[in-house]
Design a protein around this nucleic acid. Structure first.
Length: 686
DNA sequence: ATCCCTCGAGTTCA
DNA sequence: CTCGAGGGAT
């Protein structure tokens, strides 16, 4: 970007940020915009650092969000409520350390008093509580840091806020902490909302903020908020003798101890750290706990424990120098789409793939995401060059959620499906398979090398020949060792070992692995054939119906040309039936099957499913199973006559939840499906 | 014709 | 995990 483009980008960023802020604060839109807002603000900050001449003191990004509402009484804070600077990586923590060490006198860095303190950063609403003579007299929101709203009545409904302090207490005290809702209470609340047809809350913070802004404290009371204290502000008034201490407070960690003694709830997960390595260890430790932590959190607050050092470092702008918030990676970020590429699948389907500037999201760096098909691109309105919002579905798969059209420059390009296959140059058609309305585009060339490669990969994966990955397959193909999947079974140790970068041992392993996997049940064999619409389940249905491959082939009378041949099989309708009929009528396919058998593939007969004790039961597996692998669990269920399905519905009998279950766990709760853990599952097996 | 549920197929990163 | 599409119930 040149300078004038940067300036335009800055202006647009400001506008977009303002729009999101408005959506959040005024229209009460769900705060899915939150991370996006942060992401854009960061970009703006970075650009302004590079080009300080575009800095605009009046621009909105320099003001603290959240003006006091008119409905509530405004309160001037006795001590300004600060916000924290963020660190988004360990590197930024080290930068911070470098900065503060420069500012501290050398003698302070010696000895044992230089130490950090780490605590959980709750994702709630920061509030300030004033106590006089041990009694809670006033509570306020942060507001703009100087002036907040008096929400005393609402705060009094929170059980974990003591109305009276435990002795000994000082004459006057200001406590800072976070008002928030537990995840469990959010779920309960949302359950009720669903039942009553009301919209669900996106997160605990929205509820906390919304509840405390209710004018009627009874509404706030219903929400069952919680409060965690984390700071004592006016420690000059909190004199040692008033607190029953021998000497004055010297560290931040000591404040936590005092808060506990005064009767506040203070989070137990916290640590004193001698150096940043220990800080990072704590950050990593909590990252694992975080998903199961009962409250929403967005990071770890790291502070210099020694209060004198805090004083030396002081405050710059609206944030203290002695404290920093380490933020865990956001779940939604923004990035720029550099290009859209095309992938060709086993069926010849063309799948567009968005390539974007690598960004860190939910713990990993992503650089591409599938766009599924043309319809999806049109729905999103995506063009090459656009700034997009990216998230990770189920914390794993990157997904383009939204296009920020407000940031367009006019240079964005629309993406078109190519007329010719990018690999084999044959014509691309929007093929209607059986149904009239297919959205996908296809390369129909049966010899398309991309298609064939995908097929080989599918074949070895169904045969579970793990030693042969995509790269190796490709190499064997390029070397001329294999022309089709059947050739795999003729590979020799000598062939493989003759290639550079393959040793005797790995060649041996590959050949042995192939030998071991030659025997295959009929159902898997059918699946491996890659018949359109015939996957794992359908293949099983067919295998059980016929029993042997001969019967399947014989059943297809080559003389007749109708395709309702398989309709009497359970779960097979016109589309699959036609696909099967077409497949077994193709001479090439029949020859391929013969070749496989000639090359040593042994097809085991399918047996009728025994009616086990799981007959008629559908299982869904979620989370990480620790007592057995997913594969094993699946096999056990199948062998007892049950079924394993991929998604939860009201037909699901049991959801087996391991550690850190995903969205399936939630939908099970929503649908009232029985959730069991691994132990209960094992008990059922006996 | 229209629902809901499953299945198939393609997908990402560590 | 997502989206499209097939199968079956209504």
């Amino acid at each position: 970007m040149d300078k004038s483009e940067t300036q335009k980008r800055i202006i647009k960023l400001r506008r977009e940020i303002a729009r999101l802020r408005n959506a959040y604060h005024v229209e009460n839109a769900p705060n899915i915009t939150d991370d996006v807002y942060d992401s854009l603000t960061r970009e703006l900050k970075a650009l302004l650092e590079e080009y300080p001449e575009f800095y605009d003191a009046n621009a909105r990004e320099h003001r603290v969000a959240g003006k006091p509402l008119d409905k509530f009484v405004k309160v001037k804070h006795q001590n300004r409520m600060l916000s924290l600077n963020d660190a988004f990586s360990y590197e930024e923590l080290y930068d911070w350390e470098k900065r503060i060490k420069k500012l501290l006198p050398a003698e302070k860095l010696q000895g044992s008093s230089f130490r950090y303190f780490c605590e959980v950063k709750f994702d709630g609403l920061a509030v300030s509580l004033i106590y006089k003579k041990g009694k809670f007299v006033q509570g306020a929101t942060r507001g703009d840091g100087f002036i907040g709203e008096d929400i005393t009545q609402n705060l009094k409904t929170i059980n974990s806020i003591p109305l009276k302090l435990k002795k000994p207490y000082p004459l006057s005290l200001e406590v800072r902490g976070e008002a928030l809702l537990s995840k469990a209470n959010l779920d309960k609340l949302n359950k009720i909302n669903i039942r009553e047809g009301k919209p669900v809350f996106a997160n605990t913070r929205n509820v906390a903020a919304g509840s405390l802004r209710q004018l009627d404290p009874r509404l706030a009371a219903e929400r069952k908020l919680d409060f965690f204290a984390y700071d004592i502000v006016n420690r000059r008034e909190a004199r040692p003798n008033a607190l029953g201490l021998a000497s004055r407070l010297e560290t931040h960690s000591a404040k936590h101890e005092i808060l506990r003694k005064l009767g506040f709830k203070v989070e137990k997960i916290e640590v004193k750290a001698e150096n940043l390595e220990e800080v990072i260890a704590f950050i990593k430790k909590f990252e694992k706990i975080r998903p199961g932590f009962p409250y929403g959190t967005d990071g770890i607050v790291v502070s210099l424990d020694d209060l004198k050092m805090q004083e030396i470092l002081g405050v710059v702008g609206k944030a203290p120098r002695f404290m920093v918030a380490f933020k865990y990676p956001a779940e939604r970020v923004t990035t720029m789409v550099k290009n859209v590429l095309i992938n060709i699948g086993r069926t010849g389907v063309l799948t567009p793939l968005a390539i974007f500037e690598p960004v860190s999201v939910a713990g990993s760096t992503v650089s591409k995401a599938t766009l599924h098909n043309m319809d999806q691109i049109e729905r999103l309105g995506l063009r090459i060059g656009d700034t997009v919002v990216v998230e990770k579905a189920g914390d794993v798969i990157p997904k383009v959620v939204e296009v920020l059209t407000g940031l367009r420059t006019g240079k964005e390009k629309k993406f078109k499906i190519p007329a010719l296959c990018p690999v084999c140059k044959s014509k691309i058609v929007k093929k209607q398979l059986i149904n009239q309305s297919s959205v996908a585009y296809f390369c129909l060339n049966p010899k398309c090398s991309a298609k064939n490669e995908r097929y080989l990969e599918h074949f070895v994966s169904v045969f579970e020949i793990y030693e042969l990955g995509p790269k190796i397959l490709r190499r064997f193909k390029d070397e001329g060792f294999i022309t089709d999947a059947a050739d795999i079974f003729l590979l020799t140790k000598e062939d493989i070992a003759s290639l550079p970068r393959f040793g005797e041992k790995s060649a041996e392993n590959i050949v042995q692995e192939i030998e071991n996997k030659k025997k295959i049940p009929l159902s898997r064999f059918l699946w491996a054939l890659g018949i359109l619409h015939v996957g794992e389940e359908t293949a099983r249905d067919i295998a059980i119906h016929f029993g042997t491959l001969e019967k399947i082939i014989l059943s297809t009378n080559p003389g007749k040309n109708f395709s309702n041949f398989y309709l009497d099989i359970e779960n097979i309708g016109p589309a699959v039936s036609k696909s099967l009929f077409d497949f077994f009528h193709d001479k090439n396919n029949l020859n391929f099957i013969k070749k496989l058998e000639k090359n040593g593939v042994i097809i085991e007969k399918a047996e009728k499913k025994k009616a086990g004790k799981f007959a008629g039961f559908n299982f869904v597996l979620t989370g990480t199973l620790s007592l057995m692998s997913r594969e094993v669990a699946k096999e056990k269920i199948l062998s007892l006559g049950g079924k394993v399905v991929g998604s939860v519905s009201k037909n699901t009998s049991y959801v087996v939840a391991g550690a850190l279950p995903g969205s399936k766990f939630k939908s099970a709760q929503k649908l009232g499906v029985k959730v069991i853990d691994e132990k209960e599952f094992l008990n059922m097996l006996d």
